[in-house]
Simulated scan of single mutants.
Amino acid sequence: MIDDGNGQPMVLIDEGPVLLGLHADGVAHLRLNRPDDANGMNLELLSALQEAVLRVHGDGRVRSVLLSGEGKNFCAGGDVHVFLDQGEALPDLIRVATSRLQTVAGLLMRLNAPVVTAVQGFAAGGGGLGLVCSSDMVVAGESSKFLAGATRVGMVPDAGVSVTLTHLVGFRRAMEILLLNPVIAASEALEMGLISRVVPDDRILQEAMALTRQLAEGAPAALAATKRLLWNGLGLGVEACMPGENHAQAQMSGMADAREGLAAVIEKRSPRFTGR
């Protein structure tokens, strides 16, 4: 049975950095599961997320998808400790990590099922903000915060954010967000069109699940076609930008500035960039 009558989903993936359950009404629930590391993305999590999204993609029972993160934060982006430990070998890791994240972002956009993301705490970096920008709808808690963060550590946006963010909030605002890295409050994120709804912090999952279930009750083919039409309006631009993002990310991550930026985040200080 998919459901025991108490709203409990059938467990499809029950351990590891990404969990997956399927409810009787066709709601698939994807959960990032590195709570002690703010769901920071390492290769293990990215691989597991890619596998889980592909599993959802191939399951005809799925009518809608809820994406959430365990713990205090939705996703703090890439795991800066893992990145800094790579030293001058960081570009090799970044090429693989960026490629996997871009695959996940593309899959979320191309899923027939609508994707609702629930955000608590921080959604930051290519991982957090990238998943937000790749979702169809986003429900955020009142105290949640959003941060681009890439240029802060001497890198560039990825997960298609260089295109999706511009379409969501406009060119000038996207430029400010990506170059200056302001911490964006939920209310401001709602006003600029980055997210869909703001709800009380203690109601995030309940409200996001209610919206996901509402979508699951809709006409599947009509919702899928409508979603496809909307994403296709910018989809070619998103997919065309991803190889450039990957190349630039690997190039930037090989510079001393990237290692300095990562160290500054870990040490909670301002970075000292030299342009090298």
Rank of each mutant, 00 (worst) to 15 (best):
P243R: 06
G128R: 09
V119W: 03
H29F: 00
D4W: 08
S99H: 01
A225R: 14
G87Q: 08
A105E: 04
V56R: 00
M242E: 13
E51A: 15
H29G: 00
C75I: 11
V62C: 10
A113E: 02
A48G: 12
G160T: 06
W231N: 02
G5P: 12
D37M: 09
L54V: 11
A224M: 10
Q8T: 05
E51M: 07
G128V: 09
G40T: 06
V18S: 04
N246G: 06
V115K: 01
S135Y: 03
P35F: 02
M192N: 01
G121P: 10
R34W: 02
D3G: 07
R34V: 01
M192A: 03
E51Q: 13
A208G: 05
A113Y: 02
A150G: 03
L215C: 07
A140Q: 08
A76P: 01
G77C: 04
G77L: 08
D136P: 06
L54N: 13
G275H: 10
R276H: 14
R31H: 04
Q86M: 12
R269F: 03
L45K: 05
G254C: 07
G235W: 15
V156W: 08
E217Q: 15
S162K: 10
P17L: 04
L262M: 15
V11H: 05
L66E: 04
K227N: 10
L20P: 11
G128P: 10
R95W: 05
P271F: 11
G130N: 03
G5E: 05
A28S: 13
N232M: 07
G5Q: 08
L234G: 08
L168F: 04
V65K: 03
V62Q: 10
E88V: 15
M10S: 11
L262F: 14
M109F: 08
M242S: 08
S270H: 04
E15A: 12
E260C: 06
Q8Y: 01
I184W: 03
Q214R: 14
H167D: 13
S143I: 00
F74R: 06
M137Y: 11
